[in-house]
Write a protein that binds this DNA or RNA. Structure first.
Lengths: 254, 254
DNA sequence: GTTTAATTTTGGTCTAAGTCAAATTCCCGA
DNA sequence: TCGGGAATTTGACTTAGACCAAAATTAAAC
């Protein structure tokens, strides 16, 4: 159907793509690395607001975020958008399209980003020669399912502040894994996008932020967040709101 | 960690497993079918209430429902259970465990069931020799992700009656694909389990059922459901509640 | 750097769904 | 066939979060 208008693609090595360490940490032989290099020979830049793919586009490749930040969302019949995920460097996008050979969600860059493109048929071919690579790919797909389950638990049962705490902790973890601070980071999504992901209205998100700040758990300054006490926040994300009292009167926040 | 206590396993052929048509509809050569037969040589019966696997158990195999009905759920810290899916014959279970080699959710039979077991390492091995089989497996995993997205859309934005309508239509579709009636079927799950899946309390589910019945869209008799007008129900599942009026006064229900 | 537009916060009301409780029906085992 | 426990329905009340609106802050465009 539609074709991805992003161009031009430029060749680069597997190393400069940053792919190996981030996404395919399997023990490979020297010649296997070369094979792998030939696999991931495309990348492109996408600027803030640009689409990596749109629902309805033909599926050709899966993508790995090299730098930047993406959101994926599906569009309801009535025009409402449901954010299905936020995506950081090292994460794979487009896996949902394998089932029908057509993308079923939209992927848009929330800041200027770079992505690696992996033609999927090439991945399957090379996977035949490098079983550990194929197996690692299966793990990545499976992890996506686990993440979705976590989102379902969040949406199915949690209260507003639990949802927000859970998201903040999740982002915190992922920033930490990338070597960034786990307690200080910038949200590059709007309150509305956060709300869509959490199944809440933007006003509710804003109030939840305010409340967490009032309780001394976080500090927010529009887009920048500081987590004052991650372990207390974890309690909160599990519904233990009664510990709040202790927090308010509690010891200094580090 | 834990081991699956289900036993004994018995050998059977691929044909009797019913696997070929349901789950792996790929064009295979004769010798490939034999290879495949050697892959799927285990099955077992699980009676109503029995567990196929539990969270924490080692991952060895993926499973295909041969007959019966399963639910999968994850357990929250506070003991709340979140149903993540209902599973009918032909559907694959256990995919979420590939990522960590440990199951992260529970799978329990809602009625007496039979399942096929596929040792996952064998599947990966044989997939190397039969690329179309491997590719089909990737499609199945991908479809799981799409289904999860659908659940996320449901939980993230829909009203109670939209959610229930969506579930009923989804079950209807899946029964139809199995050759059963799309308008008359039995729910083998409780209102509480439905509620957990839909992110609602059981009372709300019950009221939603009653309301859909009052509006003439369905007929319920405890566990048995009759969908009177699927296209109107589809409108409902998309939030068009105003068509209700027409339905109530509307023409005869077929 | 100023103007404008977009985003965020906060307040006030309303409603869908949660909670509590009681009545009814269903279903399983003796 | 009967009895008892579970599941379901329905009612009355409460509440978290949606909805509406206005002010305040931030970001973007010129």
């Amino acid at each position: 159907m539609l074709q991805n208008p992003n161009l031009p693609h430029r060749k680069t090595s597997c190393f400069s793509c940053g792919l190996r360490e981030l996404c395919l940490p399997v023990g490979l032989e020297e010649d296997e690395i070369n094979t792998l290099d030939s696999l991931i020979n495309l990348w492109c830049k996408i600027r803030r607001g640009g689409y990596l793919y749109r629902a309805g586009m033909d599926f050709q490749s899966i993508y790995i975020v090299r730098s930047g930040f993406f959101k994926t969302y599906v569009l309801h019949e009535d025009g409402r958008e449901q954010v299905t995920g936020f995506h950081m460097p090292g994460e794979m996008l487009g896996l949902e399209a394998i089932s029908t050979d057509v993308h079923t969600c939209h992927a848009v860059a929330l800041e200027n980003s770079e992505i690696c493109e992996i033609p999927f048929t090439r991945l399957e071919e090379i996977g035949r020669d490098i079983p550990s690579l194929m197996h690692h790919f299966h793990k990545i797909m499976s992890r996506k399912i686990v993440h979705n389950h976590e989102a379902i638990v969040l949406l199915g049962g949690m209260k507003a502040r639990e949802r927000l705490s859970t998201l903040l902790l999740n982002l915190s973890d992922r920033f930490a894994k990338l070597g960034y601070s786990s307690s200080n980071f910038n949200l590059c999504m709007t309150r509305e996008e956060i709300g869509s992901y959490l199944g809440l209205k933007l006003e509710t998100v804003s109030r939840a932020f305010s409340r967490l700040q009032k309780d001394g758990l976080i500090k927010i300054n529009s887009k920048s967040v500081q987590l004052n006490n991650i372990s207390w926040l974890k309690q909160r994300s599990r519904g233990n709101f009664h510990v709040t009292e202790k927090i308010v009167e509690g010891a200094e926040l580090q």
